[in-house]
Amino acid sequence: ELAPAAQKGEAGKKAQAKAEKGKAQQAVNAAAPAAAATAVKVAALGRPALAEEIAAWDIDVRPDGQGLPEGKGSVKEGEEVFLEQCAACHGEFGEGAGRWPVLAGGAGTLKSERPEKTIGSFWPDASTAYDYIHRAMPFGNGQSLTADQTYAIVAYLLNLNDVVKDDFVLSKENFAKVKLPNQPNFFDDDRETTEKAFWNANPCMKNCTGEVKVISRARILDVTPDGEQKGNLE
């Protein structure tokens, strides 16, 4: 039974009897009228961000070059850093080791059955490589590369992808001139137009198809973890 705390009740009663009336009184008189209490000034929350604070976190680089730091790096320098810090996962030539991502090659594969999407074959903007490599690579040690190292690695990857020559030096100044080949092949979401047929107030309910055949079976492919649970008809 969940009864009041009888064993402590006596002490409590006494204590309550001498409850500080003065304090309670004050509490009531001082209570903010409800109207005033609900007038909230939104501007009151948050504090101004300092320039150094913004600088510490504002690491993004845009296609128009906004965010690029001062610095430069050559294909050659890039190759060095890449072999040291990246090749273990991505291969000496960006070809990828094991299941780690491939960074170079794949040109002309986008319409094929197995497209290989790399910086050279797929990415629209070189700025993305700068941004991402400095942000998140080497995997587990992001933001450790200097600006010069990052320019150099990007130059090396551009070279591996046949976008720049072997003697190229990438810098803040010439970055805007680098164009990636697949850039023109991106277009904005147009599903509401191109897939208009998927809007349909009265989808078919009866005899909608002819003969239905199983054309593909996951079980035969057999790549599911743990295999599968069997039926257990009683």
Binding site: G46, E53, W57, Q143
Partner: peptide, 25 residues
């Protein structure tokens, strides 16, 4: 005042970048 004070020096939780941003979880 309900207005937050301007920070005098960079917040140590912003500069330098915290550890959880620098190492894999």
């Amino acid at each position: 005042s309900a207005v937050a004070a301007r920070a005098a020096a960079p917040d140590p939780n912003i500069v330098p970048v915290p550890d959880w941003t620098k190492t894999l979880g």
